[in-house]
Amino acid sequence: MDRIRVVMAKPGLDSHYRGIMVVSRHLVRHGMEVVYLGNQLPEQIVQTVLAEDADVLGLSSLSGNHLALVPPVLQGLRAVGADDVPVLLGGIVPAEDADLLRAQGVSEVFGPGTDLTSIVRMIRELVARREGALAVVPLP
């Protein structure tokens, strides 16, 4: 299996990078490749997921912009047929917002207090599941 490729981004102007960089560093230590985008709008994030052929998209939001900016990312991925790329969200997201975003297609929301091991485990599971699904779908 190739190295798992993760695109990491901060939507909008949220500027706290400690969380996303700590997670990125851990993913790299555990054999994954991380493309860190910094602050981007949803359209640019979707374009990068395609261009980088990402296995997973990681978003980080601590500013309160998650309800405004995460759904457009999910819609954008659907519009380009990339909605099978799992989307993970980390940061400060109230529980009811997390439920809402999971219902719209976010695979998991990681709040304060999450340990790094569970993030690595989740990414590996999601990628394995997606590759299993891809294996039975004939390519066009």
């Binding site: 939507p11 909008g12 102007l13 949220d14 602050n39 709008l41 500013s63 309160g64 912009n65 405004a68 900016l69």
Partner: peptide
């Protein structure tokens, strides 16, 4: 950034 710029709108008034 001004509040009404594309990159800013979702974060206007946040934090």
């Amino acid at each position: 950034y001004d509040s009404d710029e594309a990159i800013a709108r979702a974060d206007a008034g946040q934090g």
